[in-house]
């Protein structure tokens, strides 16, 4: 089918995803049975569709992404046995136990129709609750005792993103449009997922319930960016005024100097 291999020019199509992890503190009984006495947490790292499924206790995952994702590879810390784990079936997620935070390499492979190479992204495995006391770069985060950490409930660390296909093949475009993503709810009663770029939301993220990505989050961020721009523009106006004054002064001095010569 030669026609199917034709690229549709001038079209970009994206799919909203989230990637990240959820972590819970192991109970004493679980610690004994998991086989590694030093492991303190159970965590699940995943790549999911952005919207939450109704009445589900997972973040995201309303849609099955296997129509365009063939495989997700999670590369764990080298201390894990066979650290490279391939997940070829949905859900594209992996559960493990452990005691430390580290960077997970996530590689997303697309179905053959897409004609695209895999993309790699990085996620810092988050085990300990978010706090506002930010650690300085390069220092170890403060680790709360398992008991106090357990009180916060599961720890969530998720990043929203969009996978963008440019000029897709006709066949792939048809495949994608056969699976429209579940739109994000405009608002939600559920807590907002925490993000380091918006630390002010910490309180909001601590509400009970499953964190959920919403359209409101996008709008809020858009507003924050616009407000910031307004501030910068005000500042710019101020400095333009200063510049005009200074230039005037410079001119005055130049004239003064010329007059003396």
């Amino acid at each position: 089918m030669a026609e199917a291999r034709v690229r549709v020019r001038g079209v970009t199509i994206h799919r909203p995803i989230i990637y990240g992890n959820t972590a819970t503190v192991l109970t004493a009984a679980e610690r004994e049975t998991c086989g590694f006495p030093d492991h303190t947490h159970r965590w699940t790292v995943a790549v999911r569709s952005a919207a939450n499924a109704p009445d589900s206790d997972t973040v995201g995952g309303a849609d099955d992404l296997s129509y365009f994702i063939k495989r997700v590879t999670f590369k764990l810390h080298d201390t894990y046995s066979n650290p490279t784990r391939n997940i070829d079936k949905p859900p594209f997620e992996l559960s493990e136990t452990g005691w430390g935070e580290f960077e997970i390499h996530i590689r997303i492979h697309f179905v053959a129709e897409s004609g695209e190479k895999p993309v790699t992204l990085y996620h810092h495995l988050k085990l300990h609750p978010w706090s506002l006391t930010f650690q300085a770069l390069g220092t170890e985060p403060e680790i709360p005792s398992p008991e106090s950490a357990a009180k916060f409930g599961p720890v969530h660390s998720w990043q929203y993103d969009e996978i963008v296909f440019t000029d897709p093949f006709q066949s792939f475009l048809t495949l994608l449009t056969a699976h429209p993503p579940t739109p994000l709810p405009r608002t939600s009663k559920n807590p907002t997922p925490f993000h380091t770029s918006y630390p002010a939301s910490l309180e909001e993220t601590r509400k009970p319930g499953v964190p959920e990505f919403t359209g409101a989050m996008e709008r809020d961020e858009g507003e924050r960016l616009e407000e910031a721009k307004e501030k910068i523009i005000k500042e710019q106006e101020k400095w333009k005024g200063i510049l005009l004054e200074r230039e005037k002064e410079l001119e005055r001095l130049q004239k003064l100097l010329a007059a003396k010569d």
Binding site: F110, E162, I163
Partner: peptide, 26 residues
């Protein structure tokens, strides 16, 4: 609904090398 964005395709044809590969928005 399908997250499609249309732009005027460039005049010059994109070849394999100039094709913008799949990427994350960020």
């Amino acid at each position: 609904k399908h997250c499609i964005m249309r732009v005027e395709p460039p005049v010059t044809a994109t070849t394999k090398t100039t094709h913008v590969p799949v990427h994350l928005r960020s």
